[in-house]
Design a protein around this nucleic acid. Sequence first.
DNA 1: GCCCAGGTGGGTA
DNA 2: TACCCACATGGG
Length: 218
Amino acid sequence: MENKKLLEIYDILLKHFGAQEWWPARTRFEVVIGAILTQNTNWKNVEKVIEKLKERNLLEPEGLRKISETELCEIIRPAGYYNQKAKKLHKFLEFLFREYGGSMDGIINADRDTLRAQLLDIWGIGEETADAIVLYADDKTSFVIDAYTRRVFTRMGTLDGIMTYGEIKDFFEKNLPDDLELYKEFHALIDELAKNYCTAKPRCDACPVRGLCARKID
DNA sequence: GCCCAGGTGGGTA
DNA sequence: TACCCACATGGG
């Protein structure tokens, strides 16, 4: 698939769903919290936790760092994997204070690739979460690959299913203009497409990009 | 009751 | 490298 087809898909999705304006968060720090909490978890469950954190004024680094991991577990319980995620949040905070003085503002001036490598060094932050943070919390172009992206483009015949995360990411980045808003919007639109039409029980007949998809319509 | 959801790390061969 | 598994809640 060349450049043109990828952009064609983007245009169709944008027209069909409208701008998604991801990430749904008020601050850069809130993006990070959401990115960690949503790992293999429905966003609806994450929203409940974000709301609880907001009520307790814990959506900022200083406050969140002060509470104990046991306390944090209790608050984030609805998002699942709470033991692991509480540890992950604390690991990120540890990093933020050690490297950037505890402020997300410090991260803005960091070099993109350096930041991505730093994030990947943190326990609990893998490639997708690192890319989501770089793209949505740091406003730098880094294409996010998630399970939806893999599924949609595998069914389209673009990806062969055995490609690594890095290979898929490279494919998108080489075939798309280096445009921040496009990166943010395209990832969000792919997720919207997958949620609505490309699930385990796909709705191919109504899919907005059915004409470009290799999958046999059942 | 069953399956899935905006993954990651650890262990084994 | 390539699998396999634990991690856990809430909604359809």
